[in-house]
């Protein structure tokens, strides 16, 4: 059984109007259980749109999508996935542990079970002593870890992340990448991960999906041959740079125009 199955999906915004945008055209993608897949590509190529289709936050205009062999809308109702965005998006008026409990509350869990699970998740993201603080009393990286804990609180088999580390500094970012791999390894979670950073995609993923804009589509899929175990040494390994180059080459092909070419060069300079 595959975790995510996208079959010929397309998404056209404002169909038939002057502002029509072909955000995605005929996208096919299969993600296996326990796999880590990154989506990368120039701005506006439809990465977020694809993620929202999988999350059933948008309806496709063509094709179909399945999560765990269910329709995506059923999967959403069953809470088969957790989601995290670029902004941590924690609620200011809730304590850290109450934030983590939010999805459980909505599922109607009772109080004890909820706080037990929140404590467990705080343990997982290594912030147990912050349970009763408020989000705005935490640093950006800590907030993002809480957001991940919230996304994983109901133990969903699938995690959907849209540039979750985009707002973090380089040091915190690398630390969070390690943490994410550890957490997903411990919980055997499948991940679909949107990013702008080539090294991040390579370091985290089993496969990197390269997309291009106008119309949004998948141009190539690169298998990352770095093995299952990744650690800080991975970042210095020859294979790491070889894979980065492969992704970079694949991205070159997506340069639709000068503007997006500049965008990608900007990213490489990081």
């Amino acid at each position: 059984m595959s975790a995510v199955e996208v079959i010929g999906a397309s998404k056209i915004f404002n169909q038939g109007k002057t502002q029509q945008v072909d955000a995605l055209v005929d996208v096919n993608l299969t993600v296996d259980q326990g796999e880590f897949v990154s989506l990368i590509g120039p701005s506006g190529c439809g990465k977020s749109t694809l993620l929202r289709l999988i999350a059933n936050l948008l309806e496709p205009t063509g094709g179909s999508l399945m999560v765990n062999n269910k329709t995506v809308s059923q999967a959403r109702l069953d809470q088969d996935y957790g989601m995290a965005f670029q902004q941590a998006g924690l609620f200011d008026w809730r304590t850290v542990s109450k934030n983590i409990e939010l999805p459980l509350e909505l599922k109607g869990w009772d109080k004890e079970k909820r706080s037990a699970r929140a404590a467990e998740m705080l343990e997982l993201v290594k912030l147990p002593e912050f349970a009763d603080l408020y989000p705005w009393q935490l640093s950006g990286g800590m907030q993002q870890r809480i957001a991940i804990a919230r996304a994983l609180a109901a133990h969903p088999p699938l995690l959907l992340m849209d540039e979750p580390f985009g707002a973090l500094d380089e040091m915190t970012r690398e630390y969070m990448q390690g943490e994410l791999l550890r957490i997903c390894g411990e919980t055997a979670t499948t991940v679909v991960f949107v990013t702008h950073s080539i090294p991040e995609a390579v370091y985290l993923s089993n496969r990197v999906v390269v997309m291009s804009p106008r119309p949004g589509r998948i141009t190539s899929v690169i298998d990352v041959d770095l093995g299952a175990k990744r650690n800080e040494d991975t970042r210095a390994a020859d294979g790491f740079f070889r894979n980065i180059t492969a992704v970079r080459e694949a991205l070159r092909g997506t340069q639709a125009d000068h503007a997006s070419a500049n965008a990608i060069r900007g990213l490489e300079d990081r």
């Binding site: 936050l57 959403r76 109702l77 965005f85 609620f91 999805p103």
Partner: peptide, 11 residues
């Protein structure tokens, strides 16, 4: 984004 989050919880 927060509204979308609640939507993703099927709230």
């Amino acid at each position: 984004a927060a509204v979308e989050l609640m939507e993703s919880y099927a709230a």
